[in-house]
Nucleic acid binder design. Structure first.
Ligand SMILES: NC(=O)c1ccc[n+]([C@@H]2O[C@H](COP(=O)([O-])OP(=O)(O)OC[C@H]3O[C@@H](n4cnc5c(N)ncnc54)[C@H](O)[C@@H]3O)[C@@H](O)[C@H]2O)c1
Ligand SMILES: NC(=O)c1ccc[n+]([C@@H]2O[C@H](COP(=O)([O-])OP(=O)(O)OC[C@H]3O[C@@H](n4cnc5c(N)ncnc54)[C@H](O)[C@@H]3O)[C@@H](O)[C@H]2O)c1
Lengths: 241, 241
DNA sequence: CGGAGTTTGTGACCGCGAGAACAAACTCGC
DNA sequence: GCGAGTTTGTTCTCGCGGTCACAAACTCCG
């Protein structure tokens, strides 16, 4: 029984800014930022939590709690200053300056992503497009030359890239991810329907179209069943009164 | 078998199929289905929860719990039959037959989606492409003629469409959603960065690229700060890997 | 200057979901 | 037939996250 259980008093102080923002809150901050941008474009200088919450599609209490994690940037009885809050959220997320991004796999989806203007307007800058296929290389997409996949490490080092987008077929996704990690990339956005294995310290987020549709299909099935009465062909029992 | 002996309780048995599957589980079922498909393609006939869990990138206990919501389809001491379990999951999700889907907004992203083969192989069939712009209409994308947006209601009724995909600019998204709902669509997959307002009974899922990237940027910022020396106290040794 | 009205920030509560642990059920070898 | 080994299905516990409700803080007006 040594003093192993130090227990670290450390107090329960929760209000130390920049300390452990809940993941669910992090996922909503970009939504708030977008809503604020939209308000700013309409020359609205300040807003209440209620207004911002409806613009963002969330509960106002949740919004206030989320914002409280980054500090007290509102004024009681008044609301939030749009520009000021925008900046604070952008600073917390880390998009006050642009992040360089590379896209690997310039097929159907990769080209759409490359042409997507929403990147640059929200804190990101596509600095390179990479593809393994010979016919693609050298072609220009969205003003950028498509470069060979072999140049990955060189580009990542030269441009200080830490975020990579994968839009290659599922079979190649793990290889690309491995190469990205080896090159020094530590955040990956994966569009391929594959489970990626990465070392600790590397973040992966996935966007999976089929999964989203299947989730919708599940609820749609239940709606149909609800309206219909029965669910399926009951080979077992399914006796209904 | 069929000896349903101790069926008296029914209290916490909770094994009534088709009753309240948790949302988090629903979101993972497609992942399991994909992993199973992959196993089947490699001619693997059965697997344990451990194997399937690693293939799906989740914890085995979580996987077993998830599967238990749809019934007892495994065999203790043996594992799961791949084909049988695949069918059961597909049936639960509702993708034993194909769902007709329409895509509205055939720009960069819409064309990529239309050309995406993953739809048809996972329970969905693109039956129509719609766009409001004159120059697009009549053109053929992925073997389908692009039709005027005004035909929406007619197409939805004729093809019994209940799932719609929105890939128009954010400013038009709400209008398109309203038209979809009016036409009878009750599930929407939205790619536009906009908050959609829909009546109850209509499901909306959103895929938002910028948000995903900003979440990555947030964690990336913290990694940079961590490595930079913004860490003040060195008293604690337990650095989370 | 003070009270009424408004809005933020936060403490309390509760339900869902993740994970560990274990009993039940099945197979296999003898 | 029976015990040993294996794997599922379920129970229990704990922490995160969503919601409510309210005190604190600010403005406005008389
Ligand atoms: N098209 C869509 O709408 C869509 C939607 C959701 C998901 N996805 C997924 O995104 C991925 C790409 O889809 P797509 O339709 O653009 O496919 P695609 O076949 O059109 O393009 C894939 C590109 O990746 C390149 N590539 C292949 N292997 C590579 C490697 N090892 N290194 C570098 N580049 C490589 C190919 O040359 C090709 O240009 C797929 O995994 C697909 O499942 C696509
Ligand atoms: N391109 C991408 O990679 C990408 C990624 C993420 C999100 N998005 C989002 O997806 C949406 C589409 O992106 P895009 O790059 O394809 O844009 P785009 O401008 O290339 O295409 C939009 C299409 O929608 C059509 N359209 C406009 N208003 C319409 C209406 N009221 N009814 C029917 N059709 C209409 C236009 O004619 C055009 O063909 C945007 O909201 C964008 O923010 C795109």
């Amino acid at each position: 029984m040594t003093a192993r259980s130090t227990n670290t008093g450390e107090g329960s102080g929760a209000q130390d800014p920049h300390r452990d923002i809940p993941e669910a809150t992090v996922a909503r901050l970009p939504v708030y930022l977008r809503a604020l941008t939209s308000l700013a474009e309409r020359n609205i200088a300040s807003c209440s939590s209620e207004e911002l919450a409806t613009a963002a599609g969330v509960n106002s209490a949740k919004l206030r709690k989320d914002l409280s994690y980054l500090g007290s940037y509102g004024t009681r009885g008044v609301g939030y200053d749009v520009d000021y809050l925008s900046y604070q959220i952008a600073r917390e997320i880390g998009v006050t300056h642009d992040w360089p991004v590379i896209i690997v796999g310039i097929g159907n989806l990769g080209q759409a992503l490359a042409n997507f203007s929403g990147f640059s307007s929200r804190g990101f800058r596509t600095v390179a497009l990479l593809d393994a296929a010979e016919p693609m290389q050298g072609r220009t997409v969205a003003g950028l030359e498509v470069r060979p996949f072999a140049d990955l490490a060189e580009i990542v080092a030269a441009e200080q890239v830490s975020i990579g987008v994968i839009s290659v077929p599922a079979t190649a996704a793990q290889d690309v991810a491995d190469a990205m990690v080896a090159a020094g990339i530590s955040s990956i956005l994966n569009f391929a329907p594959a489970v990626l294995n990465v070392p600790p310290g590397v973040d992966v987020r996935k966007v999976d179209l089929s999964i989203e549709l299947q989730i919708l299909a599940y609820h749609e099935s239940r709606k149909a069943a609800e309206a219909d009465g029965t669910v399926d062909n009951g080979s077992e029992e399914g006796i209904r009164a």
